[in-house]
Design a protein around this nucleic acid. Structure first.
Length: 415
RNA sequence: GCGAUCGUAGUUCAAUGGUUAGAGCACCGGCUUGUGAUGCCGGAAGUUGCGGGUUCGAGUCCCGUCGGUCGCCCCA
């Protein structure tokens, strides 16, 4: 007989329980509350999409599509992909569902996403995000509304301290192309001093050199052309309206001219809320305006802006979160009182109390275990000298429903 | 894909290359306590991730492998 080998969890996945689950739930609950305040409708979408949804929106040749997606052929032979992001799926739903009729559309989603990456702090292969998008809104007020909501959420979660909003503009298509060309020329001139990684970026994605972590690269980037010199008047006005809106709403921000997006469909606003408390993974919430995406998926040209945030990262930053405290613990200190304990527990639960019964293990130790569960009220059922006894002890004087619970206890038939 | 680092009881961690691999917490049982969150006694719990090697002797040193963690790349 060989020992049965238990299969392990898939690399980069997590079993979330206990404190981690409580933190996670706090993020989702707060997000759901806040997004309703801002009129964002909930959206529940498939976790799987045709591979083309992501391949077309992200670009067939990017690392993301070629190496980091969970793709497989289903039984019919179609190529299916586990969603690596929300935005592309939302754009697909917007087009195929004929949702132009609802534009401008404010939607919010959350759930699991999948990327085949090397796990590290705050990065998993199955991870979870909250996501908010405004589709069909061309005006900068939409960008502002999204950013105000993000700021509000971080405040609600109590993690605003140490998190700063980094803001940049990528300009419109003409601005961006001109800047791109200038960067190519500049970095080309400094080719000799660039790191190996950045030399490769020069070929594949020059904008990305701007957020290189290499110290030498950083020095070169310091003198690189800034987008501001290439912004059209329209693009300047757009960015000015965004910053003015943020100031009006009292949202603190800082300009970060090095902040870029990797993909071509991004326009105008780009932003990240960044912390120094999460090691190398400092971005807790990020997004931007992607006016080109829906067209790229075959829809009519549709302006859109959105953001997403990793639930795990937000959860790690929480300092406090709601737990559901135990209201009533009911102990059977004698085996013959166990049925009475079950009956009373059921009654309290149906009356809307969070109640727990202690009917297993050593009868003599049940009381101590019940106390360790930190209930507001502790009820003990015992059998002393053949006579049934029951007592109620209020351990938390501040518990709001104490009197109600005592009345229910007093009225209960213990027979 | 690349690099660093760590894998010992359910868990957090000990154990100079040298007896039968230990302790706290958690768990189970007994005794105190009797409105008691305490205390005492006992029990169960291990292929030291896995596979090779060096050695009289390996949890410890070496090689490989798998896994965790952190970083690079990438980051939609």
């Amino acid at each position: 007989m060989s020992k049965i080998a238990t299969p392990g969890a898939v690399r980069g996945t997590q079993d979330i329980y206990g404190e981690a689950e409580e933190r996670f739930a706090q993020v989702v609950t707060s997000f759901d509350r806040i997004r309703k305040l801002y009129g964002f409708k909930g959206l529940i979408l498939p976790a799987i999409e045709p591979t083309a949804v992501f391949a077309r929106s992200l670009g067939e040749t990017t690392d993301v599509v070629s190496k980091e997606m969970y793709s497989f052929a289903d039984r019919g032979g179609d190529s299916i992909t586990l969603r690596p992001e929300f935005t592309a799926g939302i754009a697909r739903a917007y087009i195929t569902g004929g949702w132009q009729q609802y534009a401008p559309m404010k939607v919010a989603a959350h759930g699991p996403l999948f990327r085949y990456e090397r796990p590290q702090k705050g990065r998993y292969r199955q991870f979870h995000q909250i996501d908010a998008e405004i589709i069909g809104a061309a005006k900068p007020t939409a960008d502002v509304e999204l950013l105000v909501m993000a700021d509000h959420l971080l405040d609600e979660l109590g993690i605003k301290d140490g998190v700063t909003l980094n803001l940049n503009t990528l300009g419109d298509a003409e601005s961006r192309d001109a800047w791109h060309a200038a960067l190519l020329e500049y970095f080309g001139d400094h080719r000799g001093a660039l790191s190996e990684d950045s030399l490769r970026r020069l070929e594949t994605n020059p904008l990305r050199i701007l957020d290189s972590k290499d110290p030498d690269d950083r020095g070169i980037c310091h003198g690189a052309p800034k987008i501001d010199a290439f912004l059209s008047h329209a693009a300047q006005d757009f960015f000015g309206a965004v910053t003015a809106g943020l100031d009006a709403a009292g949202v603190a921000w800082q300009r970060n001219a090095q902040l870029v997006r990797g993909l071509d469909y991004y326009r105008h606003t780009a932003f990240e809320f960044i912390t120094d408390r999460l090691g190398a993974q400092g971005t807790v919430l990020g997004g931007g305006r992607y006016d080109g995406l829906i067209e790229q998926l075959g829809g009519k040209p549709t302006p859109a802006v959105g953001w997403a945030a990793g639930i795990e990262r937000l959860a790690m930053l929480l300092n406090q979160w709601d737990i559901s405290p135990l209201a009533i613990a009911i102990v059977a200190e004698h085996p013959e009182r166990e049925q009475a304990c079950i009956k009373l527990t059921a009654r309290f639960r149906k009356a809307g109390f969070c109640a727990e019964q202690f009917v297993s293990g050593s009868p003599r130790k049940r009381y101590d275990r019940a106390r360790k569960a930190s209930p507001a009220i502790l009820i003990a059922l015992d059998l002393r000298d053949g006579a049934a006894t029951q007592s109620l002890n209020r351990l938390d004087g501040g518990y709001a429903r104490g009197n109600e619970a005592e009345a229910l206890f007093a009225a209960h038939d213990f027979a």
